[in-house]
């Protein structure tokens, strides 16, 4: 599993665990038969534990391609992706499944809850695949639904919930196995402004509690919640800047600070 690492220069492998995500010269080529499409062109990127990162860029710039690689749903064509020090290029499909199960919580634009299955069962699902006992599963799923404000709706089917509520169930599900990394690809893309703010508040809260959050968005006001904004164009990283998070709670404190300032 660790064979290739030995061949890499020391600067790449050292401190690997401190960085939750480390991309080294990652290239993704989509081979559609007739033409080859470059999804990502030599991307180098490091995300440390506890960061809240927003990824932005035009349509087709490679955001989802990057998310698929970060989410261990796909592997780079060239280069290396280390998740928590593990080189995913070396892993089999089932090993990737196990990593997704334990280390990554997914939140999708289209919610992706399992139809005709209760909120509770949906939240339980990652724990089921982690072979956690039924009792623990149910207790924890209820607790998580409570936390996203849906404690009373645990028996509801996805089609009985609003978009915002569905996305909150999805977030509860993403937290089921307490993964270190939360990945969200346009989580507010299908929501109205009010629900979007609610969902982003939830992500901010998770971040404050120590989770690493990586989210893709088209909207500047959504990206404003993050502590770091990365921009892509044509499969390349074009800008990587820190950001002062704009969560509502912090906005208010910022205001009072301004008001309280002497000049």
């Amino acid at each position: 599993m660790w064979k290739k690492k030995d061949k890499l220069p020391a600067c790449v492998t050292e401190n690997v665990r401190e960085d939750l995500i480390k991309l080294v010269d990652v290239v993704k080529v989509y081979d559609t038969g007739s033409i080859k499409v470059l999804g990502l062109k030599r991307v180098n990127l490091t995300i440390k534990r506890g960061e809240f990162v927003a990824i932005m860029g035009q349509s087709g710039s490679g955001k989802s391609t990057l998310m698929n690689i970060l989410g261990c749903l796909d592997r780079p064509t060239m280069g290396h992706f280390y998740l928590d020090g593990i080189d995913t290029a070396e892993l089999s499909a089932d090993e990737l499944s196990a990593i997704r199960n334990r280390k990554i919580g997914f939140v999708f634009q289209s919610f992706n809850l399992i139809a005709r299955t209760s909120a509770l069962k949906n939240v339980e699902l990652p724990m089921t695949y982690a072979h956690i006992s039924k009792k623990t599963r149910e207790e924890r799923a209820l607790m998580l639904l409570e936390r996203v404000g849906l404690g009373k709706r645990y028996e509801h089917m996805p089609n009985e919930l609003s978009g915002g509520q569905r996305q909150r169930v999805a977030i509860a599900r993403a937290l089921a196995n307490e993964p270190p990394l939360i990945m969200a690809d346009e989580p507010t893309g299908n929501l109205d402004t009010a629900s979007s703010v609610e969902i982003m508040e939830l992500f901010s809260q998770l971040h404050r509690e120590g989770a690493t959050v990586v989210l893709v968005t088209h909207e500047e006001n959504i990206a404003a919640f993050a502590g770091r904004i990365i921009r892509f164009r044509d499969g390349q990283l074009v800008s990587d800047l820190p950001n002062v998070p704009q969560s509502q709670g912090q906005e208010e404190t910022a205001k009072t600070e301004k008001e309280g300032a002497p000049c």
């Binding site: 499909a93 499944s97 997704r100 199960n101 992706n112 809850l113 139809a115 699902l125």
Partner: peptide, 16 residues
């Protein structure tokens, strides 16, 4: 198919 995709993303193995 989509359900299968969701399950796999959440950690279902081939065997599951």
């Amino acid at each position: 198919t989509r359900e299968i995709g969701i399950r796999k993303a959440l950690g279902a193995k081939t065997r599951d």
